[in-house]
Amino acid sequence: MSVDRLSRMDDERLGRAVRSLEPILVVPVSPDVREAVADAIQAGRPPPRHLSSRARIVILVAAAVLALATAAVAARFVIDLGGVRIEPPPTGVPSVSHPPLTGPAFGEPTTLGAAGDEAGVRPIVPPALGQPDRVWITRGIEPGSVMVAMAWFPRKDLPRIPGTPYGASLIEVEGDADLVAKYVDPRNVRTSGGAYWIARPHEVELLTGDGTRTFHVTGHTLIWERGDLALRLETHLPLADALALAGLPG
């Protein structure tokens, strides 16, 4: 058989060719993790945190890019967001197109009242946005970690966010656990009114009980904290309008 013949096989035959590799593949040494898992469970240890310990919404900065940023910018990330994880840029990983952050991606549909009951804290609804058209709830890995998401359909003061059916979405994260993470070049992050502003497309990860899922963000996002809540507002508005919607000083 030649490479030429392999490449001409239909899916079924090529699949059977892949299957034929089974007995001659080196199988990774099977780890015996039962004891380690049992120890972790019995100790009540939550899974090792994927991100920094204090941040609820975390901006992840590629190390190579951070080196170009000023120390002041880096320091401000740490102070205002409670922590920053510095990772090498994802070299060697082919770029993947991720779905937009919409609908079921936010979690289970619910109502504002039920979300408040379940989260144990009343979600903040900025008066300028009014009652949300959609509400979802998602639990994080750790007890007490919960994310409430709201969305508003486009209207005169809320242009549609590209790739989504919404004019605005607001994520609120309660609990001392990592649930939302963003990969952002710090040169694309501005600070204003005690909030962070990202007006470039980027990737966002949701770390929930079902694992980690990555989404593509096309809107402009404003991230800030209020008490124990971390908030993330996405719109397609300029900074000043987003700050006004959030009720933050411009």
Partner: peptide, 12 residues
Amino acid sequence: AVQEAFVKAWYA
């Protein structure tokens, strides 16, 4: 990775 995945699975 496997160990952490199982610990996460337990909590989920």
